[in-house]
């Protein structure tokens, strides 16, 4: 049941990612490089909805919120490495995963090296290095209520000792004011518009939280890094987890969606150096994601709606890392 629900959730997410062209690397970079906020608004709308949806689901007793730990050093270093990595890899964790299904061979290599280096960082030869880079890890005793029992990562609400609904409503209101109150870049073509993308991605996020905690033995919404790690572990006898099935589902969903809209094609760059670049980028994605305890989906899209300090800090450094590397690669001339 865990693998089955993970696969279904992943297929739905893959369709949304492919139709919405929802890549956080593009979303973050386009803001600076092209003064284009189209995908960024889809991300912000999705996060605003999840910020209200997750506590609502928890209030109804369907889930218990499980924010990520706070790691002042690891979130910054991992965030920067991941931010550099997404620019070099030509996509973030969700971007390279969905484009794997679209037939981009550069995304295949980026995804493979992302998975391999994430596995090495979590269980293999890079484990001591990553443990050092992560620095201190802070968790607190859960205040109960809509939060999961035991140790959880600190959030704005737990630090201020206030009802988690207060910061959630304020944060969501600010984001909604931004997405609907400011000018949005134009975009034509066959893809979903940004509003559809944002809403559907948030709904899949809610579905993921429910199915993964009820059937997958993993209390968290969408994620990618742990999924690739699980897929790589199956090569040495590991069992596919809910998240592994979800990542497999993303590739399948994006493949079917691209096939249906005639956007599937095996694509190869003319300059093979692009492969070297995406391999380095993929490796940085893997190391960065494990150091920061999550990628752009785990920390940014799923963690920021919890208003967890760790996810907020890591996401800030995903953005800074992306901007620094994008400027160095593409912005200077």
């Amino acid at each position: 049941m865990g693998v089955f629900t993970g696969l279904i959730t992943g297929i739905l997410f893959g369709i949304v990612l492919q139709r919405g062209r929802l890549c956080f690397n593009s979303a973050i970079r386009d803001l600076k490089l092209f003064k284009d906020n189209y995908l960024w608004k889809a991300v912000m709308l999705g996060i605003a909805i999840e910020t209200l949806l997750f506590p609502l689901m928890a209030q109804a007793g369907w889930i218990h919120l499980n924010p990520k730990p706070f790691m002042p050093v690891g979130d910054i270093i991992g965030g920067l490495l991941f931010g550099f990595g997404m620019v070099l890899a030509g996509g973030c964790a969700s971007g390279v995963t969905y484009r794997t299904g679209e037939g981009l061979t550069t995304a295949w290599l980026a995804a493979i090296f992302y998975g391999l280096f994430a596995t090495a960082s979590k269980f293999g030869f890079l484990k001591p290095v990553v443990k050092f880079l992560r620095g201190p890890v802070y968790k607190i005793d859960s205040p109960g209520g809509i939060y999961a029992k035991g140790k959880i990562g600190p959030t704005i609400a737990t630090s201020l000792h206030i009802n988690p609904w207060i910061p959630a409503i304020i944060f969501a209101a600010i984001l909604l004011w931004y997405v609907f109150g400011t000018k949005t870049s134009e975009r034509g073509g066959k893809g979903f518009n940004w509003i559809t993308t944002g809403i559907l991605a948030a709904l899949v996020g809610g579905l993921a939280y429910y199915t993964s905690s009820h059937f997958g033995g993993r209390n968290y919404p969408l994620g990618i890094t742990g999924g690739w790690i699980s897929i790589f572990k199956t090569f040495t006898g590991g069992k596919l987890s809910w998240e592994g099935a979800e990542v497999l589902g993303i590739v399948i969903g994006a493949f079917l969606s691209a096939l249906a809209t005639k956007e599937f094609k095996i694509r190869m760059p003319r300059n093979p150096m692009a492969y070297v670049q995406v391999i380095v980028g993929g490796a940085l994605l893997g190391i960065g994601a494990v150091t920061a305890s999550g990628c752009n989906i785990g920390n940014f899209f799923s963690g920021v709606p919890h208003l967890a300090w760790g996810s907020l800090l890591a996401s800030l450094f995903f953005v800074l890392g992306n901007w620094i590397m994008a400027y160095w690669m593409y912005g200077r001339r």
Binding site: E102, E186, G188, G189, K265
Partner: peptide, 16 residues
């Protein structure tokens, strides 16, 4: 071009 995202983003940005 064969990349769907850029196929939609390039026309929008050059018009701008």
């Amino acid at each position: 071009i064969d990349y769907p995202l850029s196929k939609e983003r390039i026309p929008a940005n050059v018009k701008k």
